[in-house]
Amino acid sequence: MTADTFHLVVVSAGASDPSSTKMLADRAAQRVTSLARERGHDVRVSVIEIRELLPELPQALSSQFMGPKFRAAIDTLVDADGIIAAAPVYKAGASAAFTGFLQVLDNDLLIGKPVILAATAGTARHALVVDEEMRSLFAYLRTLPVPTGLFAAPEDFSSTALTARISRAAQELVLLMESGFARAVRGDTWGAYQHEYGSAGGTELGIDLSSDLMRLATGGSHRADQG
Protein backbone atom coordinates (compact mmCIF):
# COMPACT_ATOMS: atom_id res chain seq x y z
CA MET A 1 0.00 0.00 0.00
CA THR A 2 1.37 3.40 -0.94
CA ALA A 3 1.14 6.56 1.12
CA ASP A 4 -1.52 7.70 -1.29
CA THR A 5 -3.97 4.95 -0.41
CA PHE A 6 -6.82 6.43 1.55
CA HIS A 7 -8.79 4.36 4.02
CA LEU A 8 -12.37 5.56 3.81
CA VAL A 9 -14.70 4.35 6.56
CA VAL A 10 -18.46 4.48 6.12
CA VAL A 11 -20.41 4.55 9.38
CA SER A 12 -24.08 3.97 8.69
CA ALA A 13 -26.88 3.81 11.21
CA GLY A 14 -29.46 2.72 8.65
CA ALA A 15 -32.07 0.54 10.29
CA SER A 16 -32.97 -1.78 7.41
CA ASP A 17 -31.04 -3.47 4.66
CA PRO A 18 -30.88 -1.80 2.27
CA SER A 19 -31.72 1.50 3.93
CA SER A 20 -31.95 4.93 2.39
CA THR A 21 -29.30 6.06 4.90
CA LYS A 22 -26.88 3.42 3.68
CA MET A 23 -27.75 4.25 0.07
CA LEU A 24 -26.90 7.90 0.63
CA ALA A 25 -23.63 6.94 2.37
CA ASP A 26 -22.78 4.55 -0.46
CA ARG A 27 -23.33 7.20 -3.11
CA ALA A 28 -20.98 9.51 -1.24
CA ALA A 29 -18.42 6.72 -0.86
CA GLN A 30 -18.56 5.94 -4.57
CA ARG A 31 -18.07 9.59 -5.44
CA VAL A 32 -15.16 9.94 -3.00
CA THR A 33 -13.56 6.82 -4.42
CA SER A 34 -13.86 7.87 -8.07
CA LEU A 35 -12.69 11.43 -7.40
CA ALA A 36 -9.70 10.23 -5.42
CA ARG A 37 -8.79 7.75 -8.16
CA GLU A 38 -9.00 10.50 -10.77
CA ARG A 39 -6.48 12.36 -8.68
CA GLY A 40 -4.15 9.37 -8.53
CA HIS A 41 -4.97 7.94 -5.12
CA ASP A 42 -6.14 4.49 -4.30
CA VAL A 43 -9.05 4.08 -1.90
CA ARG A 44 -9.89 1.24 0.43
CA VAL A 45 -13.45 1.32 1.82
CA SER A 46 -14.60 -0.22 5.11
CA VAL A 47 -18.19 -0.19 6.27
CA ILE A 48 -19.44 -0.10 9.86
CA GLU A 49 -23.13 -0.96 10.07
CA ILE A 50 -24.18 0.25 13.50
CA ARG A 51 -27.26 -2.00 13.28
CA GLU A 52 -24.92 -4.99 13.60
CA LEU A 53 -23.33 -3.55 16.75
CA LEU A 54 -26.62 -2.94 18.53
CA PRO A 55 -26.51 -6.08 20.70
CA GLU A 56 -23.26 -4.76 22.19
CA LEU A 57 -24.41 -1.15 22.60
CA PRO A 58 -26.21 -1.40 25.98
CA GLN A 59 -23.18 -2.74 27.83
CA ALA A 60 -20.91 -0.26 26.06
CA LEU A 61 -23.17 2.59 27.19
CA SER A 62 -23.63 1.34 30.74
CA SER A 63 -20.13 0.17 31.57
CA GLN A 64 -17.79 0.99 28.65
CA PHE A 65 -17.54 -2.72 28.13
CA MET A 66 -16.80 -3.17 24.44
CA GLY A 67 -17.79 -6.40 22.77
CA PRO A 68 -15.77 -7.94 19.93
CA LYS A 69 -17.73 -6.20 17.16
CA PHE A 70 -17.33 -2.85 18.88
CA ARG A 71 -13.62 -3.44 19.21
CA ALA A 72 -13.36 -4.25 15.52
CA ALA A 73 -15.32 -1.09 14.62
CA ILE A 74 -13.04 1.03 16.80
CA ASP A 75 -9.91 -0.50 15.26
CA THR A 76 -11.31 0.33 11.84
CA LEU A 77 -11.95 3.96 12.82
CA VAL A 78 -8.49 4.42 14.33
CA ASP A 79 -7.08 3.65 10.91
CA ALA A 80 -9.51 5.86 8.92
CA ASP A 81 -8.18 8.66 6.71
CA GLY A 82 -11.71 9.89 6.00
CA ILE A 83 -15.15 9.07 7.34
CA ILE A 84 -18.67 9.19 5.97
CA ALA A 85 -21.12 9.25 8.89
CA ALA A 86 -24.77 8.72 8.01
CA ALA A 87 -27.82 8.59 10.24
CA PRO A 88 -31.56 8.33 9.81
CA VAL A 89 -33.54 11.06 11.55
CA TYR A 90 -36.00 9.80 14.14
CA LYS A 91 -38.23 12.10 16.20
CA ALA A 92 -36.42 15.18 14.95
CA GLY A 93 -32.93 13.93 15.82
CA ALA A 94 -30.19 11.62 14.55
CA SER A 95 -31.12 8.07 15.58
CA ALA A 96 -30.22 6.88 19.08
CA ALA A 97 -28.16 4.05 17.62
CA PHE A 98 -26.01 6.59 15.79
CA THR A 99 -25.48 8.99 18.69
CA GLY A 100 -25.13 6.09 21.12
CA PHE A 101 -22.32 4.59 19.08
CA LEU A 102 -20.46 7.90 18.90
CA GLN A 103 -20.99 8.67 22.57
CA VAL A 104 -19.12 5.59 23.75
CA LEU A 105 -16.05 6.22 21.59
CA ASP A 106 -12.98 7.68 23.28
CA ASN A 107 -12.97 11.47 23.00
CA ASP A 108 -9.66 11.40 21.19
CA LEU A 109 -10.39 8.55 18.77
CA LEU A 110 -11.27 10.69 15.75
CA ILE A 111 -9.27 13.87 16.31
CA GLY A 112 -8.51 15.73 13.08
CA LYS A 113 -10.20 13.22 10.78
CA PRO A 114 -12.26 14.69 7.91
CA VAL A 115 -15.91 13.60 7.88
CA ILE A 116 -18.84 13.85 5.50
CA LEU A 117 -22.02 14.19 7.55
CA ALA A 118 -25.17 12.72 6.04
CA ALA A 119 -28.74 12.19 7.18
CA THR A 120 -31.97 10.91 5.72
CA ALA A 121 -35.52 11.60 6.88
CA GLY A 122 -39.12 11.07 5.89
CA THR A 123 -39.65 14.76 5.16
CA ALA A 124 -37.56 17.81 4.34
CA ARG A 125 -38.56 19.40 7.64
CA HIS A 126 -35.59 17.62 9.29
CA ALA A 127 -33.01 19.11 6.95
CA LEU A 128 -31.15 20.99 9.69
CA VAL A 129 -30.37 17.91 11.77
CA VAL A 130 -27.08 17.54 9.89
CA ASP A 131 -25.84 21.05 10.51
CA GLU A 132 -27.39 21.77 13.87
CA GLU A 133 -27.04 18.44 15.65
CA MET A 134 -24.57 16.14 13.95
CA ARG A 135 -22.05 18.88 13.25
CA SER A 136 -21.81 19.82 16.93
CA LEU A 137 -21.32 16.19 17.96
CA PHE A 138 -18.45 15.86 15.49
CA ALA A 139 -17.04 19.19 16.61
CA TYR A 140 -16.95 17.83 20.16
CA LEU A 141 -14.98 14.86 18.86
CA ARG A 142 -12.53 17.35 17.28
CA THR A 143 -13.15 15.96 13.79
CA LEU A 144 -13.20 18.09 10.69
CA PRO A 145 -16.66 17.88 9.08
CA VAL A 146 -16.58 19.03 5.46
CA PRO A 147 -18.43 22.29 4.73
CA THR A 148 -21.17 20.58 2.72
CA GLY A 149 -23.59 18.50 4.75
CA LEU A 150 -25.73 15.90 3.01
CA PHE A 151 -29.41 15.55 3.69
CA ALA A 152 -31.93 13.52 1.72
CA ALA A 153 -35.69 13.30 2.06
CA PRO A 154 -37.43 10.78 -0.25
CA GLU A 155 -37.86 13.33 -3.06
CA ASP A 156 -34.13 14.17 -3.06
CA PHE A 157 -33.00 10.71 -4.13
CA SER A 158 -34.03 11.40 -7.71
CA SER A 159 -32.88 15.01 -7.82
CA THR A 160 -29.74 16.15 -9.58
CA ALA A 161 -29.25 18.72 -6.83
CA LEU A 162 -28.49 15.95 -4.34
CA THR A 163 -26.02 14.42 -6.78
CA ALA A 164 -24.31 17.80 -7.07
CA ARG A 165 -24.14 18.16 -3.30
CA ILE A 166 -22.71 14.66 -2.98
CA SER A 167 -20.00 15.57 -5.50
CA ARG A 168 -19.20 18.76 -3.63
CA ALA A 169 -18.96 17.01 -0.27
CA ALA A 170 -16.85 14.25 -1.84
CA GLN A 171 -14.48 16.79 -3.35
CA GLU A 172 -14.11 18.51 -0.01
CA LEU A 173 -13.35 15.21 1.71
CA VAL A 174 -10.77 14.19 -0.88
CA LEU A 175 -9.02 17.57 -0.60
CA LEU A 176 -8.91 17.27 3.18
CA MET A 177 -7.55 13.72 3.00
CA GLU A 178 -4.96 14.86 0.46
CA SER A 179 -3.86 17.70 2.71
CA GLY A 180 -2.65 15.19 5.32
CA PHE A 181 -4.22 17.35 8.02
CA ALA A 182 -5.39 14.47 10.21
CA ARG A 183 -2.03 12.75 10.08
CA ALA A 184 -0.20 15.98 10.91
CA VAL A 185 -2.49 16.81 13.81
CA ARG A 186 -2.30 13.29 15.19
CA GLY A 187 1.45 13.30 14.76
CA ASP A 188 2.82 16.71 15.62
CA THR A 189 0.21 18.17 17.93
CA TRP A 190 -1.28 15.00 19.44
CA GLY A 191 0.11 15.91 22.85
CA ALA A 192 -1.84 19.17 22.87
CA TYR A 193 -5.13 17.25 23.24
CA GLN A 194 -6.42 15.57 26.37
CA HIS A 195 -5.85 11.82 26.50
CA GLU A 196 -6.21 9.07 29.01
CA TYR A 197 -3.98 6.06 29.31
CA GLY A 198 -5.37 3.49 26.88
CA SER A 199 -7.64 6.01 25.11
CA ALA A 200 -7.85 6.59 21.35
CA GLY A 201 -9.19 3.07 21.02
CA GLY A 202 -6.39 1.56 23.11
CA THR A 203 -3.62 3.14 21.01
CA GLU A 204 -2.76 6.00 23.36
CA LEU A 205 -0.11 4.38 25.53
CA GLY A 206 2.32 7.24 25.91
CA ILE A 207 3.10 8.22 29.49
CA ASP A 208 4.54 11.64 30.24
CA LEU A 209 6.80 11.08 33.20
CA SER A 210 7.55 14.78 33.57
CA SER A 211 3.98 15.96 34.15
CA ASP A 212 2.90 17.81 37.29
CA LEU A 213 0.93 14.78 38.43
CA MET A 214 3.90 12.49 37.95
CA ARG A 215 5.97 14.85 40.07
CA LEU A 216 3.31 14.62 42.75
CA ALA A 217 3.24 10.81 42.43
CA THR A 218 6.90 10.71 43.29
CA GLY A 219 6.72 12.68 46.48
CA GLY A 220 6.93 16.19 45.03
CA SER A 221 4.35 18.92 44.72
CA HIS A 222 2.13 19.25 41.67
CA ARG A 223 2.36 23.00 41.95
CA ALA A 224 5.24 23.85 39.64
CA ASP A 225 6.47 26.68 41.90
CA GLN A 226 7.12 24.25 44.73
CA GLY A 227 9.23 21.73 42.81
Binding site: S63, F65, Y197, M214, A217
Partner: peptide, 26 residues
Protein backbone atom coordinates in the same frame (compact mmCIF):
# COMPACT_ATOMS: atom_id res chain seq x y z
CA UNK B 1 -5.80 2.56 34.12
CA UNK B 2 -4.07 5.41 35.87
CA UNK B 3 -0.31 5.39 35.27
CA UNK B 4 0.28 8.02 37.99
CA UNK B 5 -0.95 5.56 40.63
CA UNK B 6 1.30 2.80 39.28
CA UNK B 7 4.18 5.30 39.25
CA UNK B 8 3.56 6.21 42.89
CA UNK B 9 3.49 2.53 43.89
CA UNK B 10 6.76 1.98 42.03
CA UNK B 11 8.42 5.10 43.43
CA UNK B 12 7.83 4.02 47.01
CA UNK B 13 8.46 0.32 46.36
CA UNK B 14 4.89 -0.47 47.41
CA UNK B 15 2.66 -3.15 45.94
CA UNK B 16 0.43 -2.68 42.92
CA UNK B 17 -3.00 -4.26 42.84
CA UNK B 18 -5.16 -4.61 39.73
CA UNK B 19 -8.91 -4.96 40.25
CA UNK B 20 -8.96 -7.42 37.36
CA UNK B 21 -12.71 -7.94 37.43
CA UNK B 22 -14.71 -5.74 35.12
CA UNK B 23 -12.07 -5.09 32.54
CA UNK B 24 -10.44 -7.01 29.74
CA UNK B 25 -7.05 -8.38 30.72
CA UNK B 26 -5.20 -5.95 28.41
Amino acid sequence: RTPEIAEQAAYYGNGFFANHIFWPKE
